[in-house]
């Protein structure tokens, strides 16, 4: 590239002239890595979902058998139900995070940074460790939660081994653990709302609650939309917390087993790789379906400026 002084160089031409070898240098390693470890595996999983793993390695083609067996399997239906219930409960964290972020955004509030750090602590904590701590708090015999409830005359239960409460108990921990991330994202969104808008609402006689409902939430809706899309995708893939909080011998396991737990069991504990692959594809279809649905529905409630 020889640019003679004074030569007229069109502004938009940047980068248009270098040799493609440069691009290969920049993109090549990542492209190769993603192709080997991510793209090809996706195709391979699709293939596996039509096969059955033999006793001594090797796979036999079984067509749609895995899918047929799965759809008729009550365990998958239970896992789907558990996953959906869990996801719906986890979504409760979004309004909580919006409220906390709004409170944190109060003009002139002192100690905002301290609060933000405290709410953020679980985000930097290993889920495996979080699960251990909450196992202790939830313990039926001497967990501090039941002791506190007992002090006010409520008799608790063994939250994590009772099929009626185990899933909810895990979801509550997920809300607690994820709050910090959502708050930080909402706080960034709130700071983008011009102060003049808030002042105008105030001058029109709107109280804090009315302002929150009619001004803050609609203006924050793009952030809320983002957090709920990412949150639903994450919740549908929950594994860590269930694996760590609900043990293999826990009587509540059937009522807390999620889709990914089932996948892990089939693929890595029971050597039913074909059926594990089919579970992964069922999950993909659900995730894509729900994500597309959310993008469709966003026109009804998300306000972009």
């Amino acid at each position: 590239m020889s640019a003679a002084p004074g030569a007229v160089v069109p502004r938009r031409r940047s980068g248009a002239q270098q040799s493609p070898w440069w691009a290969l240098l920049f993109v090549g390693p990542t492209a190769l890595g993603l192709a080997v470890f991510y793209l090809w595996p996706t195709v391979r999983t699709l293939y596996l979902s039509f096969t059955e793993a033999g006793m001594f390695g090797g796979y036999t083609w079984v067509g749609l058998d895995n899918y047929a067996a799965l759809l008729a399997d009550p365990e998958l239906l239970t896992a789907l139900r558990n996953t959906f219930v869990y996801t719906v409960i986890v979504l409760v964290g979004i309004p909580v995070a919006v409220v906390v972020a709004t409170l944190l955004n109060t003009p002139g509030l002192r100690g905002r940074g301290v609060y933000r750090v405290l709410y953020f602590l679980p985000v930097v904590t290993m889920p495996a460790a979080i699960a251990l701590v909450w196992r202790m708090l939830y313990n039926g015999d001497y967990g501090v939660l039941n002791q506190a409830l007992g002090a006010v005359g409520i008799s608790g239960r063994s939250w994590l081994t009772d099929p009626a409460t185990a899933l909810v108990a895990v979801a509550v921990v997920a809300i607690w653990a994820g709050l910090g991330t959502s708050i930080v994202i909402f706080l960034a969104g709130l700071q983008g709302i011009p102060a003049s808008v808030m002042e105008a609402a105030k001058l029109d006689g709107a109280g804090p609650v009315r302002t929150f409902r009619s001004v803050t939430v609609p203006l924050l809706s793009p952030s809320i939309f983002f957090v709920s899309v990412v949150g639903i995708i994450g919740a549908l893939q929950v594994f860590d917390l269930v694996y760590m909080m609900v043990g293999r011998n826990n009587p509540a396991l059937p009522d807390t087993k999620t889709v990914v737990y089932l996948f892990y069991e089939a693929g890595f504990l029971d050597n039913h790789r074909g059926s594990a692959a089919a579970i992964a594809f069922v999950l993909l279809v659900i995730i894509l379906g729900l994500t597309v649905l959310q993008f469709r529905l966003q026109k009804r409630w998300v306000h972009y400026e």
Partner: peptide, 12 residues
């Protein structure tokens, strides 16, 4: 790749 859940490439 971004849109696909982790489990899809775990086995391979």
């Amino acid at each position: 790749v971004l849109m696909v859940p982790t489990q899809l490439y775990l086995l391979p």
